[in-house]
Amino acid sequence: MADKSRTPMRRKERKEKESAEMTKDVKKAKNEGEMEVDSGELPSAEVTVTNGSVANGENGDLQVEPMELPPFEIIAGDRIDPFVFKFQFKNVEYSSGRNKTFLCYLVDKGNSSDGLLRGYLEDEHTCAHAEEAFFIQCLPNYDPALKYTVTWYVSSSPCSACAAKVAEVLKARKNVKLSIFAARLFEWEEAEIQAGLRALHAAGCKLRVMKPLDFSYTWETFVENEEQPLNLWEDCKENYEYYQEKLADILQ
């Protein structure tokens, strides 16, 4: 592991800064969220999905045992609210208040006539997580004859449970190539998290921390930006370098 003295800001100062920012941003998000609900302009829609354990069927295909989930646990949409994006995807070291996962996805099915699939998932961390729900909700009609190229831009890297399940999927579905670009590393100091990231890497998943250009691309592709450019925060590049160094240490 690299020397922790290279952290972008001293931990105490960073934590105080993030705590104050979180308090301010959460209050603003709550007020704006109430306004959006009242006007009926929420970009996402209520969905009910099925989820369950992963296993291999008799013919080697991936089988999912369905389990009914309550509504509102996984939210699907086309574009993210700009304020929510700036808060949830900010690559800070301390992620206080950022207790959801936002997963923006692109799916290329090769020679399929479906074209490029694009959208995002948001989870509430009450049961199913966005990474696990993606394969059920976004690829419900998986075809082993097609070649899938899947790209995720996520607000934070997967937890250990999700990493293990996604690794299982990639091992069972050799025709699915997945790249994950994460704004932040989730609890990267934990041994089980590191093991999960290594399992993903071993299963063929491309893992990388989001660069400043990735944030701008995600803003243009997945956010209701009203054709306004993204003004990156001051320490975006510095924080990217910090997280990328940690990820390289974990995967080496």
Rank of each mutant, 00 (worst) to 15 (best):
Pro8Thr: 05
Arg11Gln: 10
Glu13Pro: 00
Lys15Gln: 13
Ser19Asp: 05
Met35Cys: 01
Gly40His: 09
Leu42His: 05
Glu46Pro: 15
Gly52Thr: 11
Ala55Lys: 13
Gly57Asn: 12
Gly60Ser: 11
Glu65Tyr: 01
Met67Phe: 10
Pro70Tyr: 03
Ile75Cys: 11
Pro82Val: 02
Phe87Thr: 07
Lys90Asp: 05
Asn91Val: 06
Glu93Asn: 04
Tyr94His: 09
Ser95Glu: 02
Asn99Gly: 06
Lys100Ala: 12
Phe102Asn: 00
Leu103Pro: 06
Lys109Phe: 10
Asp114Arg: 11
Leu116Arg: 03
Leu116Asn: 06
Leu117Glu: 15
His129Ile: 10
Glu131Val: 00
Phe135Pro: 01
Ser155Asn: 11
Ser157Ala: 12
Cys159Val: 09
Ser160Asn: 14
Ala161Gln: 11
Ala163Lys: 01
Val166Asn: 04
Ala172Thr: 13
Ser179Cys: 09
Phe181Lys: 14
Ala182Tyr: 05
Ala183Lys: 09
Leu185Arg: 11
Glu187Val: 07
Glu192Tyr: 11
Ala195Lys: 14
Ala199Tyr: 04
Lys206Asn: 10
Thr218Arg: 02
Trp219Pro: 03
Asn225Phe: 03
Glu227Thr: 06
Pro229Thr: 08
Asn231Met: 10
Leu232Met: 03
Asp235Ser: 02
Cys236Pro: 01
Glu238Arg: 12
Tyr243Ala: 02
Ala248Ile: 05
